[in-house]
Computed example of a mutant assay.
Amino acid sequence: MAKSGNFTQAEMAKELNVSQSTISRELKRGRTRQMSTKRTYYDRYLADAGARVYRENRQFSRAKDFHKYSENFLEELPKAIVSAKQKPREHSVDTFVHM
């Protein structure tokens, strides 16, 4: 669809049953700069490039600052989040996290 140039992003999204922003992000990820034989540059969408960029981005996406929570915190959190029937909760989850 992108190669043909006959579709807008909205039309591609409707046809593929996805959000328009999904199409926009994919086109941005897959956009590469090519050089013609006349040594002029042009942008082109390549699905392989988009897939590679996606995999690289996912490889480095991790939960931030997980290491700063101690083992004690992770053991005590389930005990602090007990249903109200068993015993009333003393702190909200947010308060417990910031203690």
Rank of each mutant, 00 (worst) to 15 (best):
S19G: 09
S24Q: 08
R29M: 06
G30I: 06
S24I: 00
M12F: 00
T32H: 08
A13K: 00
M12Y: 02
V18P: 01
S36H: 07
Q34K: 13
S24A: 10
E26Q: 05
T22F: 14
Q34C: 15
S19C: 09
R31A: 15
R29W: 06
R29L: 10
Y42V: 03
E26T: 01
A13Q: 01
Q34Y: 12
V18G: 03
G30N: 07
R33W: 07
S19E: 12
M35K: 09
R44C: 12
S36I: 05
S24H: 07
M35S: 10
R31S: 15
A10K: 09
K38R: 12
E11L: 05
R31K: 14
Y42I: 01
M12I: 12
Y42S: 06
A13F: 02
R39A: 13
K28I: 04
T32K: 10
L16P: 03
K38D: 08
R39T: 12
S19H: 12
T37H: 09
Q9N: 11
E11V: 00
R29S: 05
T40R: 13
R31L: 15
Q20S: 07
K38S: 10
Q34I: 13
V18M: 04
D43T: 06
K28F: 03
E15A: 14
R39I: 12
N17A: 07
T37A: 12
R31D: 11
S36Y: 05
E11G: 03
Q20L: 01
E26L: 04
Q20W: 02
T37G: 11
L16I: 05
A13W: 02
E26D: 09
M12L: 10
E15M: 11
Y42D: 03
S21L: 07
I23N: 02
Q9D: 09
M12T: 06
R44P: 03
R44Q: 14
A13H: 02
M35W: 08
L16S: 06
R33Y: 07
Y42H: 08
S36W: 06
V18C: 05
R33F: 08
T22S: 13
E26K: 02
S24N: 09
Q9P: 02
M12V: 09
I23A: 04
A13N: 00
M35V: 13
R31Y: 09
L27S: 00
T40L: 10
A13L: 03
K28M: 04
E26M: 01
